[in-house]
Simulated scan of single mutants.
Amino acid sequence: MIRAALALLLAFLAMPVLAQDTMPPAPYAYNQLDDPRLEAEATELMHSLRCLKCQSQSIADSDAPMAGDMRHQVRSRILAGESPDQIRSWLIARYGDYVSYEPEVSATTWPLFAVPVLVILIVAGVLLRRLGKRRGDGGEAA
């Protein structure tokens, strides 16, 4: 009885994993748009969006199913008349700032831009102070 319950539990846990592999890819995941201008816009946008599964590839270069779904969304929305900026904003709202290789400065991302500048200024200040003390010490001894 316990074995049957465990087998049933494992089957329920495995169903979502198996369901993802059996779904066909979205129509525009691997097919280009007929209009070359629209496809160029979509391709340029896809190269600036990060695959959330691979993380080191753009959705244009990734073979992950999620990247295929994102390519489909980009092409479908371009075909519907949305601008690349509107699509990027929608994807950022849906997946977060991490999805974009070109993050915008916002309330959540400004520390990513400010902290490196602050660290460089602090290091430069410390180095200038130390070099100034060494020159001062060396000049008095001579």
Rank of each mutant, 00 (worst) to 15 (best):
20 Q>G: 09
101 Y>H: 13
120 I>D: 02
3 R>A: 04
109 T>W: 05
142 A>N: 07
103 P>Y: 03
46 M>G: 04
57 Q>V: 03
8 L>S: 07
4 A>G: 01
30 Y>D: 13
135 R>W: 05
5 A>W: 00
31 N>L: 04
60 A>G: 09
2 I>V: 02
92 I>S: 07
49 L>K: 02
101 Y>D: 09
4 A>Y: 05
75 R>V: 01
44 E>T: 11
139 G>S: 08
3 R>P: 00
2 I>N: 10
121 L>G: 05
86 Q>R: 15
33 L>T: 02
81 G>H: 10
45 L>H: 08
142 A>I: 06
82 E>R: 13
89 S>D: 15
121 L>F: 06
61 D>T: 11
67 A>G: 11
126 V>H: 03
59 I>V: 15
17 V>K: 03
85 D>E: 15
91 L>W: 10
54 C>P: 01
76 S>V: 00
30 Y>M: 09
121 L>Q: 02
51 C>K: 01
69 D>S: 11
4 A>W: 02
58 S>I: 03
43 T>I: 11
83 S>Y: 12
118 L>C: 08
54 C>Y: 05
32 Q>M: 12
74 V>L: 08
34 D>H: 05
104 E>M: 04
79 L>E: 10
53 K>S: 12
63 D>I: 09
47 H>P: 01
113 F>K: 11
45 L>K: 06
50 R>E: 02
34 D>Y: 04
48 S>W: 03
116 P>W: 04
88 R>C: 05
85 D>A: 15
22 T>L: 13
5 A>P: 00
104 E>D: 12
60 A>H: 13
93 A>K: 15
18 L>F: 12
32 Q>D: 14
10 L>Q: 09
101 Y>S: 12
86 Q>W: 10
39 E>F: 05
36 P>Q: 07
45 L>P: 10
89 S>F: 11
121 L>P: 00
34 D>T: 09
96 G>F: 11
96 G>C: 12
18 L>C: 09
93 A>H: 14
19 A>H: 06
35 D>L: 08
80 A>S: 15
92 I>R: 15
72 H>I: 00
126 V>C: 10
81 G>P: 11
88 R>L: 10
51 C>Q: 01
115 V>M: 11
88 R>F: 03
114 A>E: 03
99 V>K: 13
136 G>K: 08
126 V>K: 06
24 P>C: 00
22 T>Q: 14
50 R>L: 04
31 N>E: 07
81 G>S: 07
43 T>A: 14
120 I>S: 07
99 V>A: 14
114 A>S: 08
45 L>A: 04
49 L>V: 11
29 A>G: 15
122 I>G: 01
21 D>Y: 08
120 I>P: 00
52 L>S: 07
101 Y>I: 00
53 K>E: 14
43 T>R: 13
25 P>L: 13
1 M>G: 13
